[in-house]
Simulated assay, not measured.
Amino acid sequence: MNLRALALDFGDTLAVRGPNPDGRTVLDVLRRMPDTDVPDTFVAAYDHVHRITREGDRVRDTHTPFADEIRHASALCGARVPDPEAVAELVFERIPDSRVIRRAADALLRIRERRDLVCVLACDTQRPESVRRRTLAEAGIEACFDAIVLSCAIGLRKPHPRFYAEVERACGVPREQIMYVGNSPAKDATAPHMYGMQAVLIAPTGRPAGLADAIGVIDRFADLPDYLDRTVPCPLGPAWFSPGSPPPARR
């Protein structure tokens, strides 16, 4: 197995998922912004727009920008919001991001210490890159990532083939040399496998029925270093690891 890059999901893979904003949270943020005029009816308008937008996005594997949801909700209730593009950053500063799992972070640091692999964060999220980078930095693993691919930035969600094409571009190596790791059988295992990547599914309850034999299965992300040791020989061999040590400098 020739492996040169890892593409990693985030929520329920490296982290415990955080809450998504509701209309009340967005309203509170909008009313703190200059030159806005937002009625109480915005709450129901936003929640309605968000629901139907996400339903449509799931069908098309797209990701509608957060600012567009604000525009549509504002038009529906007659609100005045001069700068919808600035809202996302402020909203996601008000609510917690997903919480990185400490054992998962230690496992990632261990992999980066021992293996010269490109590492790309690749996930569906509403949160802007600046927010997600802050979360990674607080967990001590931002330096582990060479690139970040977010659905909100490219306008596409997994399992759209162009999402994986963007991941391949970010990795900078052929797709067959990329291993995608995540917890969704369809989006993080079957779809990247069909695209031509290697794949490892995080499945605490065991291998799902019908999953391709070529797809690896582990209980949790913390098991990935041992899985790699069994399946992909490490050029550095067995190595001492101190949790929390920084990843090696990129060559």
Results as ranks from 00 to 15, higher is better:
21 P>M: 04
218 I>Y: 02
155 G>F: 08
150 L>F: 10
97 D>T: 14
204 P>E: 12
248 P>Q: 05
88 A>R: 15
105 A>H: 14
39 P>Q: 04
248 P>L: 02
7 A>D: 10
208 P>W: 15
236 L>Y: 09
62 T>Y: 03
43 V>A: 13
216 G>Q: 12
41 T>P: 00
28 D>R: 15
134 R>T: 02
34 P>I: 11
53 T>V: 10
116 D>Q: 14
204 P>F: 07
168 E>M: 14
202 I>D: 04
125 T>G: 02
191 A>W: 12
196 G>P: 09
231 T>Y: 10
57 D>T: 05
141 I>F: 04
223 D>I: 11
234 C>R: 15
24 R>E: 14
42 F>I: 12
230 R>G: 12
140 G>L: 05
26 V>G: 02
149 V>F: 04
64 T>P: 11
86 A>K: 15
16 V>P: 03
125 T>D: 00
224 L>N: 07
199 A>L: 03
105 A>T: 13
177 Q>M: 12
24 R>K: 14
245 S>R: 14
241 F>K: 13
2 N>K: 15
194 M>N: 11
29 V>R: 01
189 A>V: 13
143 A>D: 14
206 G>H: 07
95 I>R: 11
183 N>T: 06
207 R>G: 04
55 E>S: 12
211 L>K: 11
172 G>S: 10
75 A>T: 02
51 R>Q: 03
75 A>M: 01
31 R>V: 09
111 I>L: 14
230 R>I: 08
50 H>Y: 02
126 Q>S: 11
8 L>A: 03
113 E>N: 01
248 P>R: 10
134 R>I: 00
199 A>G: 07
129 E>D: 12
79 A>H: 14
193 H>D: 02
133 R>P: 07
27 L>H: 01
87 V>P: 02
36 T>I: 13
17 R>N: 05
209 A>K: 08
236 L>H: 09
27 L>P: 03
40 D>Y: 00
30 L>V: 12
18 G>C: 06
188 D>Q: 02
42 F>A: 04
51 R>G: 00
157 R>G: 04
125 T>C: 03
50 H>D: 01
109 L>C: 10
18 G>E: 06
142 E>C: 01
103 R>T: 08
102 R>D: 08
137 A>L: 13
59 V>D: 04
50 H>A: 02
133 R>W: 09
224 L>Y: 05
173 V>C: 11
251 R>N: 11
193 H>V: 00
178 I>W: 02
237 G>T: 04
